[in-house]
Amino acid sequence: MSEFLRAYLTVAVFAGAAGLLVLALSTVGRLLRPSRPTREKAISYESGVDPVGPGFGQSQVRYYIFALLFVLFDVEAVYIFPWALRLEEYGGFGLVEMAIFIVILALGLVYAWRKGVLRWV
């Protein structure tokens, strides 16, 4: 197995370790904790008042446009990282390139700002 794959095998094993911890604690918990379910205990919590409606309610997602902006900027971040890593080789050329890239994106942000997207709707 290559060094690279082996490094990520460690990552997978660590994820397994998290699962192991949960499994161990849950097993101990199962042995120790009581289980006396009643109908009242299974009612959704709404500050002590009887819940209204089925629980899975509708809610207005007020910042869905932020989510679109986020995708834009997150992809940008993915491009910036390799550039940041090799900047010394690219020198002035790379700097100007990235400045243009960032300015265009910043213009996008300014446009969204002026359009009132960043306001609470």
Binding site: V22, G29, L32, R33, R36, A42, I43, S44, Y45, G55
Partner: peptide, 20 residues
């Protein structure tokens, strides 16, 4: 560790347990 585990009756049990 000694506390009883409660879940609302309508909860999506599998996702509810997996989330933490």
């Amino acid at each position: 560790v000694q506390k009883e585990l409660l879940a609302p009756a309508r909860a999506d049990r599998r996702v509810f347990t997996l989330a933490p």
